[in-house]
């Protein structure tokens, strides 16, 4: 069952690539933000998989249990990274709202066309 242990890593790579594709190839700014979200979620799964120790339990000290425990460090790191990710989403969505107000659209190609007009004028 060796392959089973690698499943989280495949999920992480797949999620990251789907997210990256969305962030780069999609024309709609909201979809780009969704792509970024997926991209970062993939990384969370990667870090959580790093923490696994064979036969380990949740890292909470318990009477009569000598261990092993899973490593708490990546968990803590990823809590921080989740906060960062949420803040990024907030700033990104705020920008999208402002773009919608200023341009009346959130489609990248229409925005590019409107910006090009502005340069010639």
């Amino acid at each position: 069952m060796e392959w089973l242990r690698l499943v989280p890593y495949w999920v992480y790579v797949a999620l990251m690539m789907i997210g990256l594709y969305g962030a780069i190839a999609r024309g709609n700014l909201v979809k780009k933000v969704i792509g970024l979200g997926l991209f970062q979620t993939g990384i969370f799964i990667f870090y959580i998989s790093l923490a696994v120790v064979d036969g380990g339990t949740a890292p909470i000290a318990r009477e009569g249990w000598e261990g092993p425990y899973t490593s708490p460090l990546p968990h803590v790191l990823i809590l921080t990274a989740i906060v960062v990710s949420v803040s990024t989403m907030a700033v990104a969505l705020a920008l999208v709202i402002e773009v919608q107000r200023a341009y009346g659209t959130v489609e990248a190609d229409e925005l590019a066309a409107l910006d090009a007009e502005g340069t010639e004028a």
Partner: peptide, 20 residues
């Protein structure tokens, strides 16, 4: 200049990908 918004958004997408 409203183009600051699209520039900031592009920067955000590339910056977030880089930091990730």
């Amino acid at each position: 200049d409203r183009r600051a918004l699209t520039a900031a958004f592009q920067y955000l997408v590339m910056g977030t990908v880089g930091a990730s």
